[in-house]
Amino acid sequence: MSEQLTPEDENRVAAAEYTLRLMDADEERRFEARLSEDQALKQDVAEWVAHFAPLADEYAPVKPPAAVKARLTANLFGAPDVPASIWSRLGFWRGLSFAATAAAAVLAVVLVTQPAPDAPVSGPFYLSEIASEDDSLRVLAMFDGATGGMRVTRTAGEAVAGRDFELWAIVGDNAPVSLGVLTDGGVDTIAIPASLQGAFGGVVLAISDEPDGGSPTGAPTGAVLAVGQVSGV
C-alpha cells in the first residue's frame, strides 16, 4: 500500500485479510505465527469475525442428502452392533487406502410377513434387514430359494446425486461378490448366483457407497454404509 499505515492499522488490515482469507498460504502461515503470541492481534481478528458474521445471512440453507449423515455417523461412531470380525473383514477387502473405520449396521432380522399363499414354498426362504446405525438407510432383502431371486426393497435412504448404492454378498472369508447396484426406484429383484444360493444362510449383505454405475474395480471402493446378516425363515 502506498500510504504509510500506523502499526495498529497495519495489524487491523492484516487481521481483516486473514479473516476473509485473502492471503495466500505462506502469508497465512506467517500471520498465524504472529497470532499465536500477540493478544492484541487476536482481538483484531475477533472483531473482524464479529463484523463479518452478518454476511453469513446470505448463505442460503440447502438440505443435504440423508446419506451424508449416515456416512458421518458411521465414520465417527463406527458400528458397535456388528461383530468385529465382520468389520475387520470388510476393512481388509476395502483395502488399506481407506483408513477410516467406516460404517454401521444393525442386524435386525425380523419375520415380518408370511410368504403369500400362492408363493412357492418349496425352497428355503431367507430374510435380512440391511440398515445403517442411524436407520437413515434401510433395505429389506428376501431371498427365495425356490426361484433363486432376491427381492430388495429400500425403505429408507437414497444415494447422493452421482453416486450409487451397491449391494454385496459376503460368505465366510471370501471376497465380497457384487449383487449389483440398487436402482432409484427402491425395489429390485436380483438373481442370486448359483454359487451363493447353497450357502445363503450364512451370507452377510452389505451396501457400499460407490461411483455412478457401481464399483469400477469389482470390489467395494467406498464407505460401507449398512450391513445385515441373513437368517432363514
Binding site: E32, Q43, A46, A50, A53
Partner: peptide, 13 residues
C-alpha cells in the same frame, strides 16, 4: 480458537 471474541465483544457485535 485463536479468533474468538470476548463475551463483551460478542455483546457489542
Amino acid at each position: 480458537a485463536a479468533s474468538g471474541p470476548t463475551p463483551e465483544q460478542s455483546a457489542v457485535a
